[in-house]
């Protein structure tokens, strides 16, 4: 959900772009972190842990904690809280440690 009105801040958003999450098409703003676009779309679960399969969301949002690892354009372990959204990105839920193809 976007904050449309704010008493103090005006948000400088990039251009609208499309990306996919697990194959489905979503929209976000170019240059914002992938996690922000996903969060806006109501997606909270970004991955599942390798041993117990517990759901993972982001935690720190500044690239510190590695809670937000996802597969982006086929590459696993991308911290989506700092990775910037680009047109046509393919973002996937990461299960476990991820495989390097």
């Amino acid at each position: 959900m976007r904050i449309e009105q704010h008493p103090i801040i005006t948000f400088n958003k990039g251009r609208k772009v499309q990306f996919t999450f697990d194959g489905k098409v979503y929209e976000g703003y170019e240059g914002e972190p992938i996690a922000a676009a996903l969060h806006d779309a109501g997606i909270r679960v970004l991955g599942h842990t390798h041993k117990l399969g517990r759901p993972r969301g982001f935690y720190c949002a500044i690239g510190n904690c590695s809670s937000c690892l996802m597969v982006v354009n086929g590459k696993p372990n991308v911290r989506v809280c700092v990775e910037k959204l680009k047109e046509g990105m393919a973002v996937e839920t990461q299960i476990g440690r991820g495989d390097i193809k």
């Binding site: 909270r44 679960v45 759901p55 969301g57 982001f58 949002a61 809280c81």
Partner: peptide, 9 residues
Amino acid sequence: LPGIYGAGA
């Protein structure tokens, strides 16, 4: 659980 976030985040 997803939904538990740091204040900075």
